[in-house]
Amino acid sequence: MTETVKVYSRPKTLIDRPWHFCPGCHHGIAHRLCAEVIEEMGLQENTVGVGSVGCGVFSYEYFNFDGIGPSHGRAPAVATGVKRVLPDRLVFTYQGDGDLAAIGTTEMVHAAVRGEKITIVFINNTLYGMTGGQLAPTTLMGQVTTTSPYGREAKQAGYPMRVCEMISTLEGAAYVARVALFNPAQVAKAKKSIRRAFETQMQGIGFSMVEILSACPTNWGMAPLEACKHVENNLTSVYPLGEFKVPEGVK
């Protein structure tokens, strides 16, 4: 006798509706991983997601749990407010590199400084996606964007910002990892990191952050698979993958 068993199905933590993301955009994978981990940890009823402005702006329309749409860059401050009132809930932000590494740098850094028991899921695709592919603090040297038409030059726009390296110097930051989604093995690792970050929070250990190197095929002008290769070949050398800080409790 045999029976049919589900190997993979849509998590209940995602609302059943189409997404606005472009074909091959890694935001979709990142959304799905967050949703899967929350479902697996049994936290759907106890989660407050805080979105951002940029391609993550519709996250509250996709996640099937409570959600807040904050202003640009301020998600960690909004999450702080929620978490201080509801310390037993899972509170996480979902922010891109424009939102987090430019306009929201202060809020992100000081949430980590305070050891705020929230999680930041940080999508680094080296540019502003939603507004049409402008230069971000994370843009690679020489990378052509709509506002670095001659390629990023140090004398004009400085150097790429390595958020995990910076944040991991802070005592309040308990779990800090950089992951990628360019192949199935990396997706599995990314999911494990998101889980560890959420566990760090739920165990009350401290601040946690997962930076996800993500492909933006549309604004990179690449086919989806080529964009995956670009992450693997050109982003990981500037933004090395790995766990920068792991607390004892989640090892």
């Binding site: 006798m1 045999t2 029976e3 068993v5 190997v7 993979y8 849509r10 993301f21 074909p23 091959g24």
Partner: peptide
């Protein structure tokens, strides 16, 4: 082989995977 790698790489949650298992 119902490995579900396709579903895990899909950015749009398009794919569901099943397998036949012995009872």
């Amino acid at each position: 082989i119902s490995c579900a790698i396709c579903a895990r790489m899909c950015p749009d949650v398009v794919i569901e995977v099943e397998k036949e298992a012995r009872r």
